[in-house]
Write a protein that binds this DNA or RNA. Sequence first.
DNA 1: GCGACGATAGAAAGCGCTTTCTGTCGTGGA
DNA 2: TCCACGACAGAAAGCGCTTTCTATCGTCGC
Lengths: 348, 348
Amino acid sequence: MTVTLADVAARARVSPATVSRVLNGNYPVAASTRERVLKAVEELDYVLNGPASSLAAATSDLVGVLVNDIADPFFGIMASAAQSAIGEGGSGRAGGEKLAVVCNTGGSPERELTYLTLLQRQRAAAVILMGGSLEDPEHLAATAAKLARMAEAGTRVVLCGRPPVPGDAHTAALVFDNRAGGRRLTEHLLGLGHTRIGYVAGPADRTTTRHRLEGHREALAAAGATEGPTVHGPYDRAAGHAAVAELLARDPGLTAIVAANDTVALGVCAALRERGLSIPGDVSVAGFDDLPFSVDAVPALTTVRLPLHDSGVRAGRLAMGTEDAPAHGTETVPGELVVRDSTAAPRG
Amino acid sequence: MTVTLADVAARARVSPATVSRVLNGNYPVAASTRERVLKAVEELDYVLNGPASSLAAATSDLVGVLVNDIADPFFGIMASAAQSAIGEGGSGRAGGEKLAVVCNTGGSPERELTYLTLLQRQRAAAVILMGGSLEDPEHLAATAAKLARMAEAGTRVVLCGRPPVPGDAHTAALVFDNRAGGRRLTEHLLGLGHTRIGYVAGPADRTTTRHRLEGHREALAAAGATEGPTVHGPYDRAAGHAAVAELLARDPGLTAIVAANDTVALGVCAALRERGLSIPGDVSVAGFDDLPFSVDAVPALTTVRLPLHDSGVRAGRLAMGTEDAPAHGTETVPGELVVRDSTAAPRG
DNA sequence: GCGACGATAGAAAGCGCTTTCTGTCGTGGA
DNA sequence: TCCACGACAGAAAGCGCTTTCTATCGTCGC
């Protein structure tokens, strides 16, 4: 039925071993023989059996990329970058072509674990975890344990935008400095003269949410300002939209609103507009991430730019082993404050 | 080193066969035995070896989802929907848990083929191709041939948003009615009184681009209107931004611009605004897809809504075999004209 | 001109699992 | 009471490939 290595060997009048060697190119094979084999492969339209190959070689060419929400450009951009770095990396030298696949956990710890198990089953060459994680101790421990086992079994583990596991020194981590970014953003607002700032945070139990919020509070504390109302919700437009009513109810005198990310900020802007409030005339709005659409929002969004593409590429390289891991395993990636038109001094 | 089925069998004092049967649950095993095995699995922290399992069973639980650009929400939304449908589908009955992985082709035919080969190697259970394809005959033939071989080998093939291969009757296809959508959009503009309409198309050699453009021209022809300037470019913001200068140079009297999709439309709006032109006062703008951010654009974008989420879910189900394929293999999915604020009658 | 060595090719032993094909009991029907 | 049959469990044969370990030459050095 299906063509096997043996069929190719028979047709090329060589042993299966030789065909395997030609295909893997890690053993000297005479040029004439190689040619004969390649011709047979071509003629038979032979396709290597991945499972058999992985079983015998005890390795696979799969690299898993776990993301919280693939429909969110934040993850899409990083995943895309990582995937291209991995695809290209293969052409280089040993290690060969790798198949980067992205897995959508939907932010669910169970799915995350399920995917990790599935990847572990497949003996994935590497796995990249992108984005913040849930802060549930139990889940954290389970994940850490699983990652440790995988690393032990030879799978390279890379974290991108997720804090490293405390005890573990063996997985490379690129962490976004969400705290500093959040701080800078609020400092900017404070500098503009705002004193009553509302905050639309992400889900309460996520690292990203917490760090950004902490940065915000640090800035407030440093300036001796009092904290305004805070609302938690998912990282989507609807959450931002809904939060405005709540925020304004709690403090009708708000002059600025900081959103968990750009998507949420967009929802905030829409809700503000619906209420007839102008941005930044009545209320200043700020986001986070600097997603592509943020520059086109009206007014263009003040935000904190994260090097999503670059980080994705680096994560991909780390996964391929093409790039050395940062000195202490963890590298902090800074965000850059981008001031645009959605923030201005509050009305005298 | 690593724990194998045999280790579990030894610990549970049963044969490897029994362990396998417990794990796969497709053969009667006494409750007491099962329990003993499960306990051993637990204690040993055993993880099935995927390759070995796939090799022996000649099947795998991988489902590949190929997309043109994972950083584009258009694909992200569909992929996310498909992935969740696939993840859930497993819990149901036979077929079990599947691992949906998304592969980013970047619109490159070579990468597409590479990924298909890799998936073929892995003996993927199914593969979903999302989004339009390149119209190069050679590539089309190569892809068709590869898909045919895969289908033959038992891999389910599903197309989502991509026209079916002419000769082939065995792969399910969900195709967006880009032509009708494009037609309706232009009819809307024509109805408003526009006669000088510019068009920012996608890459020239893609099915999606061609169909949308054809719809546009059909509407024009039906109304006896003359076609305005058309510019081709990638499906991104920059393309829309750049196209405006060109379009206006070719016809300074343009009163409307139709963009290949919402992302491009955003770029068009930005460029228009930079030139001091108001939307829709001076120029009406329309997009396509109705991505989440389109409703928040200012002015909110008139566009054609495609049921991306639903289609993704259906594609996922088709890939799982959970849903029956459409009657003739192909089903046309209609788009819905969504009129918002970015289009209005041209100035008297 | 002879022995040794480098360059190739083959033989064969698995890799870890699934799945027939065979048992072995225990039980219900006659 | 005996036989047939159902319910389980085990033995063993691969699945298709990789990779030692060997075997075979042709040739280089002296």
